[in-house]
Design a protein around this nucleic acid. Structure first.
Lengths: 152, 152
DNA sequence: GCAAATTCGTTACGCTATAACGTCTCTTAG
DNA sequence: CTAAGAGACGTTATAGCGTAACGAATTTGC
């Protein structure tokens, strides 16, 4: 993601927050920026280390609070099987995300498939559950690592 | 699960292991039994505490090694969003599991839906991924807790 | 029986996440 | 204007999850 794209995403995030009466504080904004600039899912303690480089010693709660805020507003998603965080393309629209993750290199792609979400919701409802959140992740080998695997 | 059902499950597990040339050692067997007897998903450190009551101080690796073995042979599944383990109904057949989990009481039901597994596999393959493992979990409120929620 | 492999105990450590409390700031109603 | 309340953040401590590394003991295959 180019710096310009990051700026655009940050501006959009600011807009979303303002609309919702939420505050995109400096910490939250900076954490979102770090996630946006990363080309792979980012771990909480990596974010913490970067933030501490800039601001001196903080602590895990500072990061986790920012992450909780960004998650609540759908500005980021959590990849559960990696314990890592990625930026979300469109926070405006409420939606669920799915991911495919490479076991080898960690490459992660977001999927947006309404059908699979509906299917899982239906399976839950058939059992009387009111489904609120879905975690749908596929792990395996990305195209690049499949090639490497064959040659190894 | 009744004690008799537990015994049957353990015998079946023993059979599966023998067939595969794997050893269901006392530790592994006991861990499986503890998971079978629990009516909810069980956490690693809970298992560790119970095992240490019986055998004196051990350590996390003892439990995690047993869990890894049981997972590898599909005798148990891991509920990723709960960091907990449940017994598997049929280890003979290779399969993926899905779960619905109650946010309120932790009640967890296993789903076996081949269609959703195939869907996610296809979504991964469309992106060039060789999908090896799937995590599909729905979190929400179980029937009992839905009622409580309305009254509260 | 002996070498190799598997299993397990043990110690230590790293990563993930939250509880609890105090301070500061910002809003806002009076 | 100001006091009260809410929200955000810093800080310390701790709980929970998981693995690395090493050595002893046991099992297995030859």
């Amino acid at each position: 993601m180019t710096s310009q794209q990051v700026e655009i995403a940050l501006a959009r995030a600011q807009r979303v927050c303002t609309l919702r009466g939420a505050r995109l504080t400096p910490v939250r904004r900076r954490v979102l920026e770090l996630i946006l600039r990363a080309d792979q899912p980012t771990k909480a303690y990596v974010l913490l280390a970067k933030l501490e480089q800039e601001r001196g010693k903080l602590g895990p709660p500072t990061i986790y609070r920012a992450l909780d805020f960004l998650l609540a507003h759908q500005l980021i998603h959590k990849v559960e099987t990696s314990n890592a965080f990625v930026a979300c393309d469109d926070a405006e629209r409420a939606h669920q995300s799915q991911f495919v993750i490479c076991e080898d290199c960690g490459a992660t792609e977001e999927i947006q498939d309404d059908d699979i979400v509906a299917s899982l919701r239906r399976l839950g409802e058939m059992r009387g559950f009111a489904v609120e959140r879905q975690v749908i992740e596929a792990r395996g080998l990305c195209p690049a690592c499949r090639v490497g695997q064959r040659q190894a």
